Simulated assay, not measured.
Amino acid sequence: MISRPFRIGTRGSRLALAQAHEVRARLMAAHALPEEAFEVTVISTAGDRIQDRALSEVGGKGLFTKEIEDALLGGRIDVAVHSAKDMATAVPDGLALTAFLPREDVRDVFIGRSVRRIADLPQGARVGSASLRRQALLKRLRPDLDLVIFRGNVQTRLQKLERGEVEGTLLALAGLNRLDAADVAGEILDLDAFPPAPGQGAICVEQRAADEATAALVAPLDHADTHRALLAERAFLAVLDGSCRTPIAAHARPDGEGFRFHGMILTPDAARMHETRLSAGRADLVEAAAEAARRLVADAGPDFFAGWFG
């Protein structure tokens, strides 16, 4: 029995709240509990407050999780709900990622102010994105575009687009689907040419590692294929020391009895790119992804990474 409301920590954006409410709904269904058995606690993060600079300039992915993880470690919340792609590769001591919900569509979409496709943008058009991966992949498709940092939640970015600050932007289809806003999407981008960020489309649940009661409560939410895919993508990322300063793409997906994996690294200027594709069994996938990353590092050479971490 739950003697007090079970506290679910989250950021305060509409998308973050939609994700937290999905976790709450799944917990209610799994345990036949009423809504009042759960409390959604909104926590402001530095990533939400700092909107005028690229994440790579002010601390990277941890800006979206640190305050929430501090609340979890301090016992002020029982679990944290995150977009998996926002998670740093190293989870703080005492915490663990114990559940990954069934994955949404992993693809990116282009949203234009006056055109529906990237190919239809005029020469030199300004396109906004907060993601170095998206910027680098766009540069490979359209090196003529003027790419600018474009921070903010989904609604903020769409408002900036409508005001004409840019001619187009890129967003994750998963987020639009969760907000019932997929109708704003123009072009859904091909996965081979535009692979996603590691973790894109997945919601993860973080908890105190030693909290066995919470682990038992959360366990029914875990989707085995998504969990295995995310372990592989995070292992690939960890080898590459991935952060918001590194254009890295990774996607693992079920294929018959095993998985297929596609990984990519790019220089921020998109001048160079290396990629890997492999198939692996369920038990071998995580190590195969890590080994693929090590091979990419060897193939790319030390000069490929020289400007990434200065």
Rank of each mutant, 00 (worst) to 15 (best):
V109F: 00
V109T: 08
V109R: 04
F110P: 07
F110G: 07
I111F: 00
I111S: 05
I111Q: 05
I111G: 00
G112W: 00
G112C: 09
G112F: 01
G112A: 02
G112T: 08
G112S: 10
S114F: 15
S114C: 13
V115W: 00
V115S: 06
R117E: 14
R117I: 09
R117Q: 09
I118V: 14
I118R: 00
I118D: 08
I118S: 01
A119Q: 06
A119E: 12
A119H: 06
A119V: 12
L121H: 01
P122T: 01
P122V: 06
P122H: 03
P122C: 02
P122K: 09
Q123K: 14
Q123R: 15
Q123T: 13
Q123F: 15
G124L: 06
G124D: 02
R126M: 11
V127H: 07
S129D: 06
A130D: 14
A130E: 11
A130S: 13
S131Y: 02
S131K: 00
L132M: 07
L132C: 10
R133H: 12
R133A: 14
R134F: 12
R134V: 14
R134M: 07
R134G: 12
R134K: 13
Q135R: 12
A136H: 03
A136Q: 01
A136T: 07
A136N: 05
L137S: 11
L137I: 11
L138I: 04
L138T: 13
L138P: 10
K139T: 12
R140V: 03
R140S: 11
L141M: 14
L141T: 05
R142S: 09
R142W: 06
R142A: 02
R142M: 04
P143H: 02
D144M: 03
D144V: 00
L145V: 05
L145D: 03
L145Y: 02
L145E: 04
L147V: 02
L147K: 03
L147S: 07
L147G: 03
V148S: 01
V148P: 08
V148A: 06
I149C: 15
I149E: 12
I149H: 15
I149M: 12
I149P: 15
I149F: 12
F150W: 07
F150Y: 12
F150R: 10
R151L: 13
R151V: 10
G152C: 05
G152E: 09
N153S: 12
N153Q: 02
N153W: 07
N153E: 13
V154S: 07
V154F: 13
V154I: 10
V154C: 04
V154E: 11
Q155V: 13
Q155H: 15
Q155M: 13
R157K: 15
R157T: 00
R157A: 05
R157M: 09
R157W: 01
L158P: 00
L158T: 01
L158Y: 06
L158A: 11
Q159K: 15
K160D: 10
L161E: 03
L161W: 05
